[in-house]
Amino acid sequence: MRDTVAVSGDGLHELADRAQALVPADGRAILGIVGAPGSGKSTLADQLLAHLRRRCGDEWVAHVPMDGFHLADAQLRRLGSLDRKGAPDTFDADGYAHLLARIKAAPDEWIYVPGFERDLEQPIAAALVVPPAARLIITEGNYLLLDTPSWRAAWAAVDEVWSVLTEPAVRQQRLVARHIHFGKDPDVAREWVLTVDEPNAVLIDQGTDRADLFVHNAADGWRVAARR
């Protein structure tokens, strides 16, 4: 694990500084943000993207969400895994790893990447793009630090990984609200959180100590510390 910095209060500006410092003078860098479902990793990624675009220009930073590598429901039905959607094996981990490696190896190419449509709960091909001008790529997802061959290959392409930590009760409340918002019955939403999301959170936590930085999603902003 690399040395960490200490940031107090709403540390978005300091986090943006750290992200910007990852970029070499003559190349590009990939920042990974991991966290359990409902931890706030997508929120942090979105805030960093907006902050760095204001600071450095729209094309200086690009977004590659791991959610774009969800297997479509048609494949999950074929595999009998639709009721486990969101588990590690319901993603195309190899495709994700290959894409991250290509982003590093081919900086002069326009590289189209999949996104994820929350209303449909489906991946969308070529929804996003990494332009040649992009110096920093932010990718966020649950399993970037999972210790399996495919996920290790994805991790190998990333320059630094930050782990977003949130109180479990807060995470679970957010997840239940999210599932209800996107169409689940409240009882079904609560059951899904307990039987699908929380076992996934346990898996994610097993890799957390490999992160380069811990970012606490606190009530008063982002707080960063060397230890959990």
Rank of each mutant, 00 (worst) to 15 (best):
S150W: 06
T208F: 04
A201R: 00
T195M: 10
A157E: 02
G115S: 13
E117P: 02
P186M: 11
E167D: 15
I137Y: 03
D205R: 12
D212S: 12
V196K: 04
L144D: 03
L203A: 12
F214M: 06
V129W: 00
R118G: 09
P131G: 06
A169D: 15
L136F: 07
P199S: 11
R118D: 01
A211D: 01
N142K: 04
Y143E: 04
V202W: 09
I124P: 01
R223Y: 05
F116D: 05
P199H: 10
L145M: 14
A134C: 08
R152K: 13
L175V: 04
Q122A: 15
V224K: 00
N200W: 05
L120Q: 15
V224Q: 04
P199W: 12
H179F: 07
V129Q: 08
P123A: 09
E160N: 11
H181Y: 15
S150G: 14
R135G: 01
Y143H: 07
E198A: 12
Q206H: 12
A133K: 05
Q172H: 15
I138S: 01
W151I: 06
A127L: 14
V202D: 13
E160W: 06
V196R: 08
V170E: 14
E140V: 11
T166F: 07
P186I: 09
E117M: 07
R135N: 05
D119T: 14
G115T: 05
A218D: 07
L203E: 07
T208L: 12
V215R: 00
A169I: 13
R152P: 02
R174T: 13
T139I: 08
W192D: 05
A169V: 15
Q206Y: 02
E117A: 14
S163K: 04
H179L: 08
I180R: 09
L203K: 13
E160S: 15
V188Y: 06
A189D: 05
E117G: 07
A156L: 11
A153D: 14
V130R: 01
D187F: 06
P168G: 10
P132V: 10
R210Y: 02
P114T: 07
L194H: 11
F214L: 10
A201K: 01
V158G: 00
E140N: 14
K184A: 10
T195L: 03
E191N: 13
L213E: 00
E198W: 10
V188W: 08
F214H: 03
L146K: 04
W222A: 04
A219R: 12
R178Y: 09
W151Y: 15
R190N: 10
A177G: 12
V176K: 03
A134V: 01
S163F: 14
G207W: 00
L136T: 04
L165M: 10
E167A: 15
V161I: 15
L203H: 05
P186C: 14
D220G: 02
G115K: 09
V188K: 12
H216L: 06
P132T: 11
V176M: 07
G115D: 09
W151T: 03
D197S: 07
L213S: 00
V193Q: 03
L165K: 02
Y143R: 01
Q172I: 09
A134P: 02
D209A: 09
P114E: 04
A201F: 05
L144Q: 08
P149D: 10
R135W: 05
W155S: 03
A126L: 06
R178M: 06
R118M: 09
N142V: 05
A156H: 13
G207K: 00
G183A: 12
